[in-house]
Amino acid sequence: MNHQFFENLLLSDSELTQVELTMLQEHLQTCEACRQFSNALEDVDHLFHNTPIASPAVGFTQRWQESVIQDNKKRQKRQIWLILIVGVCSISALFALLGFTILPVLISPIAVLWAELFNLVTWFSAVEWIVGVLLTMFRAAHSVVPTSLWIALSFAFMGLCAVWVVAFKQVTAPRRLVI
């Protein structure tokens, strides 16, 4: 049988069967290599089991408390830096945006002024046009519809408004539940 099999038996952590144990003992009596391996394994196990736990130098806990204080300071510094960097970046971005908006005015202020004036004039003319159209429509309606009908229509419109107000109050008024 090969050495590998017996080495595995020697390294095994589970308990060996009687057959395995006998085979191993017989092999160890005849095989020098496996015997040396077995002894080496025993020596290593013995060495590790008998080496005491290493202890730190006296004052470990005090040094830990100091390191916590140092770490807290470091963290605070890091936070301050982070806030500073974020603040500086935000302000820079704000200035950049502002610059982008103001830049055309700074480059050619008269052109921008003219453009704004043109916009204003366009708005005024649009409003004037709408008012003109409405007045023309009113004049045309006035000449076609007789005055008595106008009065009747006005009263009807007022009545409808009154109905709407009453209905709205009824709907929105808080209700009382009778138990």
Binding site: I53, A54, S55, P56, A57, F60, T61, R63, W64, S67, V68, D71
Partner: peptide, 27 residues
């Protein structure tokens, strides 16, 4: 402190590094 230091010491084979590693572990 002892079990943590021992593990660090056996891993790093150096008392100074083991002390730093043990402190860092607790932190």
């Amino acid at each position: 402190q002892k079990p943590v230091y021992n593990l660090c010491y056996r891993m790093l084979n150096n008392a100074e590094d083991a002390e730093d590693a043990a402190q860092e572990t607790f932190l």
